[in-house]
């Protein structure tokens, strides 16, 4: 089902459909605990509620890697998906900063021991791998994206040990809002081309490496799972199924199963 949604004075076109599970490419790794929880929930459910978001061109999953992995592991042949044009500037790419409780002294000592270079907070760029606190910051050098994420993983481990807490995640693009009251680990923000390349080459980025901001998304499409198991499902049938539903537009911010900062198209 092809849809056109009004977004900030422009129109975003997207397609709600089904894709073969085997045709989609993840670009991030999954968190094992969360994956298991989702698999249990799916096993007890009759529907796939929300479609995964996929680049129409490359079949790379932009949002919903865990749902996809759960359905793959449970043997589903098909998955409900919302296809978008990734090259459309309305589809934005950000990443997630890791926020820990403040631990300025120990953190700075750790970073110096790891050979990081001090930086002025205003000089944090989108490609920086950095740790910042209130009024201070360190940049960690890396050779390429794979190296950056390898170092990111090490830093995550070290900072969790140091602060005794698992991180919470905040949008990297607005990290300055959080830096005063937290110790932030900022991963470099990959480009869209790097995301597609990582997926195609199977070199998956760590979980929460990217944050895709889709300006409008369909939710609660409720495609029956019994259909998604079928080997010979005709996507035209799902199209007809979706046409029977009512659709509502919800302006952000909306909190349903999670907080959405984008326009929602609620199927009912």
């Amino acid at each position: 089902m092809r849809l056109a949604l009004p977004v900030r004075g422009a129109v975003l076109e997207l397609e709600v459909t089904v894709c073969r599970v085997a045709d989609l490419l993840p670009h991030e790794e999954v968190v094992a605990d969360y994956l298991e929880r989702l698999k249990r929930a799916l096993s007890a459910s009759a529907y796939q509620h929300n479609p995964v978001v996929v680049d129409a061109q490359s079949n790379v999953i932009l949002d919903g890697t865990h749902r996809w992995a759960a359905m793959r592991d449970l043997g589903f042949e098909w998955i409900a998906a919302c296809k978008v044009d990734y090259s459309n500037p309305l589809v934005e790419l950000d990443s997630w900063a890791r926020a820990y409780p403040p631990a300025d002294g120990p953190a700075r000592r750790l970073l110096e021991r790891l050979g990081a270079s001090p930086l002025g907070t205003p000089s944090v760029s989108e490609s920086s791998l950095a740790v910042v606190g209130a009024g201070w910051g360190y940049e960690i050098a890396y050779s390429d994206l794979a190296d950056a994420f390898r170092r990111l993983r090490e830093l995550e481990r070290e900072l969790q040990l140091l602060t005794g807490r698992a991180p919470t995640y905040v949008p990297r693009s607005s990290w300055e809002r959080y830096a005063r009251g937290a110790l932030l680990l900022l991963p470099p923000k990959p480009s869209k081309a790097e995301v597609v390349r990582a997926a195609r080459e199977g070199r998956l980025l760590p979980p929460k490496s990217t944050r895709h901001v889709i300006p409008a998304r369909p939710v609660r499409v409720n495609v029956p799972l019994k259909l998604l198991r079928s080997r010979h499902l005709d996507p035209a049938l799902v199209d007809e199924l979706l046409k029977q539903k009512r659709m509502f537009l919800l302006e952000p911010p909306v909190v349903l199963d999670r907080e959405y900062q984008e326009l929602l198209l609620l199927f009912a």
Binding site: R246, M247, F248, L249, L250, E251, V254, L265, L266
Partner: peptide
């Protein structure tokens, strides 16, 4: 509450 606008 959220305001839902019927799209169809």
């Amino acid at each position: 509450f959220a305001v839902a606008t019927e799209a169809l």
